[in-house]
Simulated scan of single mutants.
Amino acid sequence: MAATVNETYNNTCVSIEISPISDLLMSIYIIALVLGLIFNLLTAWPIVQQIRSKNVLGVYLLSLSVSDLLYILTMPLWIYYYHHDHKWTLGQGMCRLAGFFYYSNMYISIYLLCCISIDRCLVVTFPLKVKSFRHCKYAWLICGLIYIFVMSLHTVVLYTDKNDLMDSQKHCYETYPMTEHVAFFNFLRVGIGFLLPLLVLAVCYWQILSKVQKSTGVDKQGKRKVKLLSVGVIAIFSICFAPYHILLLARSIAFNRMDKKAYCTFEQAQHFTFSCTLALSSLNSIMDPLLYVLVSNVIREDMWLCWRNRQTCGEMKCLPF
């Protein structure tokens, strides 16, 4: 009975009709699929070489690349969905699976970006003290805990929300109104999944910039690279994830504060904008390898030699700051 009421309410609450924006969403996911797959596969071998040379940063980069690839593998399903104008015909099980990997790996990527930033910050700020506990085994443990934590939370949400993933119009993850426990989980996602990591990134790179600027052992070019990387990480993190989480927060507040009519009007007005911000977040899978791998001259040169000679590459040095 509850599912029937929700389906009826959705038909009058938000009308998801054929729209030209579906082509735009499909285009964004196609770009994320093609470029994300190419960039992550292209940088896979140099990252493996870092791990073989006992570079802790390589562990985080590989975990981030695996997360991005899992994220990318859901793209064909969303391309199919938007190609059919928000109609999901692959069954509820596939809808649940696609959403699980999509959202789980979004936050796995966010937390791994934080790990990389913290690791860089510690190396710059306390270069001698961190040597005693900066080992690959600890990095693997941290990455594993992040995967387990995020996927466990999304498994719980998926189980409790299993009847609300699709409505009578076959919309996948576009059922309205949201339920109370989903609204509560959205607040957690915004708080610990976005705002807290953003704060960590800002503090880490502020600390890195401060230390590097005061250092006399780093030349102007090195300082410029650090500045560009720091600003770029925070900017891209904000561009890819901020719009989505801001609207997610606004939707959850509207659900809790507005009456049904006002809430439905709000959801109808922002629906396609919200869909665009969700698609925009997928571009992070393109930017991760560019920011953390291709920024390094050492890795670029080594990767070029790998492709040019097609022979076993030599050990690489750590990424420069």
Rank of each mutant, 00 (worst) to 15 (best):
I18L: 14
S117H: 04
A254D: 07
S65V: 11
I30K: 10
F187I: 12
K214G: 05
Y263R: 02
Y111Q: 11
A32R: 09
L249T: 13
W140R: 14
V123L: 10
H271I: 07
Q49E: 14
G191N: 01
A32S: 15
L280T: 13
G232L: 11
I239K: 05
V48P: 00
L248Y: 02
G193L: 06
G314W: 07
S285G: 09
K211F: 06
M258L: 12
K214S: 10
A254P: 07
S15Y: 15
C276I: 12
I51T: 08
L33Q: 05
M151S: 00
L90A: 06
N284M: 08
K87G: 00
W307F: 15
Q169H: 12
K225G: 13
F149A: 05
R134L: 06
T89D: 05
K87T: 12
R52G: 06
L290T: 06
L319Y: 11
T175K: 01
Y147G: 05
Q213H: 00
V56I: 10
M178C: 05
A2I: 10
H245G: 03
A202Y: 09
L97Y: 12
Y176S: 10
N11Y: 02
L249K: 03
V157A: 01
S67D: 05
Q270K: 03
Q49M: 15
K170Y: 01
C13R: 01
Y107V: 01
E267N: 02
D119T: 15
I47A: 13
D302E: 08
F194Q: 07
Q221E: 10
G144I: 13
S152W: 00
L77P: 02
S230A: 04
A2K: 13
N256H: 13
S230M: 01
F194A: 14
S19N: 15
W140Q: 10
R251C: 09
